[in-house]
């Protein structure tokens, strides 16, 4: 894949496009005009210090946060603005949360089938077949009847990924998917994310897993103070960052 620059891609060709996104919490600006275009099957990794606005940006991408201004497109369809069928659009945007957010009163299978049955109106048998396929793809078909409390953190996060994948989204958002995990459980989740990427999924990932970014990302974006400071392919980004703020961040992360 060729290097994607800041200006590459237009709202009509990119799978996910953010244009001039602004957002404030009260008087405190969190996003100061974000432009970002994620191409089909691209994995874009967002790095940045806490408070840099990266999670807020991600949460704007399915409007769990409402941007104050700017526009977002998914496959050329406008997500922001009035008259958008938000529930319809959200089916195309999978999201994985830091704290998994599995439904504790349902089994792993029930977690995955819920939206298939209630949103896509699938009959139970069909929904369960789809859900089992999704659980198999994250290596948990043998845990289908377990409740979240009976699963490890890593297994819970993989069920959460299956829950999002089962809707066959066109783009997946990952909000610090491994931050709440014990170190020994991180690898399994990253392996699943790698497989999801290999299936051709378009992915926007907010995470601190630098090593994973280096190996798996197509592009790394560095955010600070609500703006994108620098971006590029991981080789160049980590070896020769151009901006002073990026260098300072990377050296802090490396300790």
């Amino acid at each position: 894949m060729e290097t994607v620059s800041n200006r590459a891609g237009t709202p009509s060709t990119a799978t996910l496009s953010l244009r001039a996104l602004h957002k404030s919490f009260g008087t405190f600006p969190v996003l100061n005009g974000i432009d970002l275009h994620v191409q089909r099957s691209e994995m874009v990794f967002v790095l940045g210090p806490s408070g840099s606005g990266k999670s807020t940006m991600l949460r704007c991408c399915n409007r769990l946060e409402e941007p104050d201004s700017g526009a977002i497109w998914v496959e050329g369809d406008l997500l922001t603005g009035p008259g958008v069928d938000l529930n319809k659009m959200r089916q195309r945007i999978g999201m994985v949360f830091q704290s998994f957010n599995l439904y504790p009163h349902l089994t792993a299978l029930g977690n995955v089938t819920l939206a298939l049955r209630r949103v896509l109106k699938m009959p139970r048998a069909e929904a369960e077949a789809e859900a089992m396929a999704a659980l198999k793809s994250v290596g948990l078909s043998d845990r289908a009847r377990h409740t979240p409390a009976q699963l490890s953190g890593g297994q819970q996060q993989r069920v959460a990924i299956a829950r999002a994948l089962a809707l066959k989204p066109t783009v997946m958002l990952f909000d610090e998917p491994t931050s709440a995990l014990d170190p020994e459980l991180v690898g399994d989740v990253l392996d699943v994310m790698r497989e999801v990427k290999e299936q051709g999924m378009t992915m926007l990932v907010v995470s601190h897993e630098m090593q994973f970014a280096r190996e798996a990302a197509d592009r790394v974006v560095f955010m600070d103070g609500g703006s994108i400071i620098e971006q590029g392919p991981p080789d160049r980004f980590f070896a020769a960052p151009e901006q002073e703020r990026t260098r300072a961040f990377l050296s802090r992360m490396r300790g």
Binding site: N87, R90, M95, F97, N101, Y103, L114, A115, A160, A164
Partner: peptide, 30 residues
């Protein structure tokens, strides 16, 4: 019921009412 439950349900395209019936209320009652 943690707000993350609602967010997870809404992120899969469920309506506010569906989220209440299938996600929030069962946990609230329990």
């Amino acid at each position: 019921v943690p707000v993350g439950q609602t967010e997870a349900a809404r992120s899969t395209g469920m309506t506010a009412t569906q989220t209440l019936i299938w996600v929030t209320l069962p946990q609230a009652v329990r």
